[in-house]
């Protein structure tokens, strides 16, 4: 179960992984963006308490973030 502490560990892990992967090759673009989207979700759902919010807010943030990330990923292909 995710809590603030495990959330923080994941955030740091994803940050380091993202920096490392992007340093290896630019082919990892999609992966890096997905890692950062995951971090976005950890912050909003866990830290900001969005997981207790009305579905409207959860769906809205999902759509906005996934929309943006897919635009960036697909436009780079």
């Amino acid at each position: 179960m995710l809590n603030n502490k495990t959330g923080w560990l994941l955030l740091i892990l994803f940050t380091l992984a993202g920096s490392w992967l992007s340093g290896l090759s630019h082919a990892f673009l999609a992966l890096v963006m997905i890692l950062f989207a995951l971090k976005f979700f950890i912050i909003s759902y866990q830290y900001m308490g969005l997981r207790f919010a009305h579905p409207f807010w959860r769906y809205s943030i999902n759509i906005v973030v996934l929309g943006f990330v897919s635009v960036i990923i697909f436009s780079s292909l």
Binding site: S22, M33, F36, K39, I43, S44
Partner: peptide
């Protein structure tokens, strides 16, 4: 707190776009 987290959220978008990918 929500405002402060918003700065994190924005940085989660800026950082990979500007520095990494």
């Amino acid at each position: 707190a929500a405002f402060w987290h918003m700065c994190d959220l924005i940085w989660m978008l800026l950082f990979p776009m500007l520095y990494l990918i």
